[in-house]
Amino acid sequence: MRSKIKAHKVFEIYEEDRGRRLFTKNILPGKTHFDERIIKENNQEYREFDPRRSKLAAMIMKGCTNAGIRKNDTILYLGVSHGYTSSFVSDMVGEEGLIFGIDPAPRVVRDLVFLSEERKNIIPILANANHPEEYIERVSAADIVYQDISQRNQAEIFIKNCKTFLKNGGYGLLAIKAKSINIKRKPKDIFIEIRKILEKEFTVIDYRILEPFEKDHAMIIIKK
């Protein structure tokens, strides 16, 4: 039988059905956290990565070829929430990698603690990403900074964090929610404006609007 699952262009991601479905290699075989579909092949387990629930998956579905995340990376994840995306990122970086997950809301970090007790490479931190001094003593520098926060000053927070924590040559992924910056203006104008702000500080290597998976969202990937 021909193998159904192939490696995707993006590192550590697998695809099925000519890229219509995305998967990651499960580092905890036999365990799912969000009732996702599982495929078993050649003694390996793959978890389905839903682009409607995760902006990272949506970005890859939209044709991004380099998300920057590789095995054994250290990742600073701002706005982890319940940890849907970060559970897949934890698959991607593997057991040797590390994710610092930061979120200010106790309710969602509570869920994240249960996840991190199973996945030992996720570290939950209850802190506000707007104030890096709150958690500067609790994290290390990172290869990747991933931010998914719906705040008005999301670009400012992202630049602040990238400057402090991102290593030179590291990648930063910023998910922008236009609706939380200004609901009156056209989303596309906002994206372009933020892109210009980021271009002053870093090199923008990818920019995609996440329609139809997420409405009025875009993602920008930068390199420091």
Binding site: E96, V113, N121, P124, L126, R138, S140, A141
Partner: peptide, 26 residues
């Protein structure tokens, strides 16, 4: 200085202490 601690030998320590602190703050 932060780059110094981006090393595998500190992972376990970061995990243990952060988890404990987070549980306390929750």
């Amino acid at each position: 200085a932060l780059l110094l601690f981006k090393d595998k030998q500190y992972h376990q320590e970061f995990y243990k202490k952060n988890l404990q602190l987070t549980k306390q703050s929750i």
